[in-house]
């Protein structure tokens, strides 16, 4: 396990980048996923079809393929995903604002892919909201969007929070692919670099390196899991 201490800066930097990538992708996935879920339950058939197609597509192709479409496809279309160079945010997440687009591409690929699963988790949450809630909302004259926004989605979110958490945890682990898709410096790829290419000619054995990588992921996923448990417990208390 010496590798963790000897190469601590490598793991620390890798962790910080993976954390940033996961954080921003989670926000993206939740936003896109909610939008797709709304499409899927929309009363307008073409929108419903669009939402269903989205889920069927992104849920059923490998994440690597999504990455290729984004990482190779967007430049073909002449895009560097500059819309993600969000002023202010790029001060905190400096990789967002740089010329190289692969951090932004990775966020897009992870968000698009994970959104399909977010949508399904949300939909299960929406189904868990008793139909009387939406009916009561309609009966006081809320429109479809108001109904979703003020009545159904807030409750669906609560019912969906645990499955959503699992989706986000899976996404954090999936983020490891980014290191093979243009992004330099995420946790798992920097760790593997210690094994295959080494530092100043010194290479490290696989097992300790991967233990260190796993620790980095656990730091992100375990607290998230605990938080979910707490939210779930709180919710049960409230419902009683």
């Amino acid at each position: 396990m010496n590798v963790l201490w000897e190469q601590f800066p490598v793991f620390r930097d890798g962790f910080l980048l993976t954390f940033q990538l996961s954080f921003l992708s989670a926000i993206g996935a939740l936003l896109v996923g909610t939008l797709v879920a709304v499409l899927r339950i929309s009363p307008v058939p073409p929108l419903r079809w669009l939402g269903t197609s989205y889920v069927n597509l992104f849920r059923n192709i490998p994440l690597t393929a999504v990455f290729v479409f984004v990482v190779v496809g967007l430049p073909l279309l002449g895009s560097s995903a500059d819309f993600l160079k969000i002023p202010g945010l790029d001060q905190i997440f400096t990789r967002l604002g740089i010329d190289l687009p692969y951090f932004r591409f990775s966020i897009i690929a992870l968000s698009l892919y994970t959104a399909a699963f977010v949508c399904e988790a949300l939909r299960s949450g929406i189904n868990a909201v008793p139909s009387g809630q939406a009916e009561a909302a309609r009966s006081i004259g809320l429109t479809f969007t108001q109904n979703l926004r003020f009545i159904v989605l807030p409750q669906a979110w609560r019912a969906a929070i645990v499955p959503l958490g699992s989706v986000i945890i899976a996404m954090i682990k999936n983020s490891a692919i980014a290191g093979f898709m243009g992004l330099y410096g995420d946790l798992s790829s920097r760790g593997q670099e210690l094994v295959s290419a080494g530092v100043n000619g010194v290479t490290y054995p696989l097992i300790p390196v991967f233990i260190a990588i796993s620790l980095g992921f656990l730091i992100m996923t375990v607290p998230l899991g605990l938080l979910l448990d707490r939210i779930e417990k709180n919710r049960m208390v409230k419902a009683r």
Binding site: P130, E135, S139, I151
Partner: peptide
Amino acid sequence: MVFQSFNLFA
């Protein structure tokens, strides 16, 4: 409209 099962927003 008033429902049998109240349907207050939970």
